[in-house]
Simulated scan of single mutants.
Amino acid sequence: MRKPRHLSSEERALWDRVAERATPLHPTKQAPDRALSPKKAPADIPSEPLPSFRVGQKTPAARPHDVMRPLVDRLAAAPVNMDTKSFGKMKRGKLKPEARLDLHGMTLAEAHPELIAFILGSQAVGRRLVLVITGKGKDRDDGGPIPTRFGVLRHQVPQWMALPPLSQAILQVTPAHLKHGGHGAYYVYLRRSR
């Protein structure tokens, strides 16, 4: 960090002459005299005493890392874009999916192109309801400072479906009924191909 440079007496005299001749931009405002005003002391903020902590000790209370609502709640709150009667049948597992894609064991890099090809191909052949199985995922979060997502594909697949090119082909996404995989799978209701 550089040390502040102070003006010499000649530089100070030159500055004072320039300041006398300058016209203020806002003549009604008074410029604060910084040399005369004392700096305010920061307000004392009451703080709680920190608990004792040893290196290697686990944190006392694990808090969730997510600030967003759970995925199931977000999908449930999404507006119904399809026929309400068909939507109710789909959620109760009464509609049979015409095709299914199982993404178990795939990485994100492998699953994304498979999902795109499956959804767009299904729409091209005229399918309306398909099932995408992601699996529930393994509980890998060890409570460390960097959170590990529970079920990476389960969380990523709905986000991919909300983005182009899939968003133009999809009318509705909802978690599957228990007999079709429950929260480890999604019903995807497709738009009619044009």
Rank of each mutant, 00 (worst) to 15 (best):
R17H: 09
Q57Y: 06
M68I: 05
A185C: 04
L171F: 02
R34E: 14
L101A: 05
M161K: 11
F150R: 14
R127D: 09
A117G: 05
V132R: 04
L50D: 03
L108T: 11
T28N: 07
A43C: 10
L153F: 05
P60K: 10
K3D: 03
L7F: 08
T134L: 02
R128I: 00
E98K: 04
G93Q: 05
P4Q: 12
S47Q: 10
A13Q: 15
K29L: 10
P38Y: 12
P70Y: 07
R100A: 14
D73P: 01
L115E: 04
H6N: 07
V157I: 03
L171I: 08
A35T: 09
D33L: 14
A35S: 13
P147H: 08
P97S: 11
S52C: 01
L36Y: 08
R194F: 03
S37Q: 15
A162E: 12
K96E: 09
V157P: 04
P145K: 15
K91I: 03
P145W: 13
V157S: 02
L171E: 15
F87H: 10
A176Y: 07
G144Y: 08
A117D: 12
V188T: 04
Q168C: 02
A77L: 04
S9D: 11
K94N: 11
V157G: 00
L25C: 09
A35M: 07
K138Y: 04
M106H: 15
T174Q: 03
A13Y: 12
R54T: 02
L25I: 10
K40M: 03
K138H: 10
R92V: 00
D141K: 06
A35Y: 10
L50T: 08
P145E: 15
D33A: 15
A109H: 11
P175H: 02
A76W: 13
K91F: 02
I133N: 04
G56D: 06
R194T: 11
K138T: 02
A62F: 01
D33K: 12
I170S: 09
G56A: 02
D102P: 05
I45R: 12
D83H: 06
P49W: 03
K40L: 14
I45M: 06
